[in-house]
Design a protein around this nucleic acid. Sequence first.
DNA 1: CAGCATCCGCGTTGATACTG
DNA 2: CAGTATCAACGCGGATGCTG
Lengths: 137, 137
Amino acid sequence: MADTLNKLPDAAQIAESVMNAGFDMRNCPVRDVLDQISGKWASLILLALSTEPHRFGALKRAVPDISQRMLTQTLKDLQRDGFISRHVFATVPPSVEYRLTDMGRSLMVPLSALIGWAVDNHAQVVVARERFDEVAQ
Amino acid sequence: MADTLNKLPDAAQIAESVMNAGFDMRNCPVRDVLDQISGKWASLILLALSTEPHRFGALKRAVPDISQRMLTQTLKDLQRDGFISRHVFATVPPSVEYRLTDMGRSLMVPLSALIGWAVDNHAQVVVARERFDEVAQ
DNA sequence: CAGCATCCGCGTTGATACTG
DNA sequence: CAGTATCAACGCGGATGCTG
């Protein structure tokens, strides 16, 4: 994954084809879709669910600093967009399991690649920031 | 790009390897990097710059609904993270050109794939939302 | 266990006006 | 042309307490 630089032509191609395919930035599908998965928590929840289904409590433990409120809300948003499904088991005490839908798994293909990039290049970004802040005092 | 569903194993692999590679959700590189590129405008600006360098005014026209303030601010943030570079030409009137850095181009590999997914699957997401809102009244 | 309801601060965004 | 400065509105997200 360190050789992403060698794949630049592909990226330019995709970008160009996106721009050409009647891509209108006004009623923007990019924002409409990405705004959801780019919230503070969505990508982390999707990442956790990509390995296996999780119950509410397990998710809360898997995504350490999330509050109950945000977990509930983000799960609802992700379900609304069709990325995850909710399965209630009428046990006592009740248990609810969340899992990726087919569309959610399909989304994880490019999303996990992006997450992988973030993990690989995080250090470089940090360095770039420090350098920038240094110059601008 | 319609056959992304067939590539699920790859996604699960990447996700799993990400999770295993000492991935700590607390000091999260994902959020640290993604928060920037997932702002309301960043992805659109990067997309515009991925085809060719743009001047400030050209960018403002390429990303229709952006305000001057947000364009300036987002450009500064992207430059700070090392994704774009700023080139000032001492002409009269002054002109400033923005272009992707090597790291920015590298980022566009996975990012443009994600954008492509968004474009391809936007309709499905909209349908999922309508269905959800219908049931929940 | 898995939520919902409420309150509230603070950051992000937008509108507007001004400048080198 | 390419910004900066200021103000106001909005909503995300956190903290807390309560429920089936």
